[in-house]
């Protein structure tokens, strides 16, 4: 066999091995996480709560745009975790996300406020507290993905009635 054929075989073999090892190893390398920036913050500026309706004024007091939020309620002080979803009870025409969440139309820029109204007549006996987790849409691999800002979660006890 000529030296030339030997070299060709060697290089082909090395490339082939390289492709196999690359495909095998790439599953063991962590990919870049999609994280919410630290300075995302929403706060409940005002609320007005009756037995049937909750009006919330939310203010973006962070440094980044907020695209939406999850909103959940508790109906007793014993309930440690808010699990009553209020997203589908919004009455101010915002887009409701599937399976849950409220999308703020045109997003909420820093220092901006928005007032949303919710029908809470199905929550018995009363809404005791609410929990809000901001959401953002961030780009990853040329795709917009929803990111949950779990560290910016807010919880507030309400007095409804």
């Amino acid at each position: 066999m000529s030296i030339m054929i030997g070299y060709v075989l060697l290089i082909t073999f090395v490339i082939f091995m390289g492709v196999i090892i690359y495909n095998w190893m790439k599953g063991y390398v962590p990919q870049e996480d999609l994280n919410c920036p630290d300075d995302v913050s929403l706060f409940i500026k005002d609320y007005d709560c009756s037995t049937t309706q909750l009006n919330l004024t939310l203010k973006n007091n962070g440094k980044f745009q907020v695209g939406g939020y999850f909103i959940r309620a508790t109906n007793s002080p014993q309930q440690g975790l808010a699990i009553i979803d209020l997203s589908f009870n919004i009455t101010t025409g915002e887009t409701v996300l599937t399976p849950t969440g409220v999308k703020i139309n045109n997003s909420l820029d820093p220092a901006q406020e928005v007032t949303h109204k919710f029908d809470i007549s199905h929550v018995t006996p009363l809404v005791y507290s609410i929990e809000i987790i901001p959401l953002r849409w961030q780009e990853q691999n040329r795709r917009k993905r929803m990111v949950i800002c779990k560290d910016a979660k807010i919880r507030e006890d309400l007095i409804c009635g």
Partner: peptide, 15 residues
Amino acid sequence: ADYSGGTLYVSNSGN
């Protein structure tokens, strides 16, 4: 997650 009064509550707040 929370467990109170015989009820288990779980909420997925991650991505």
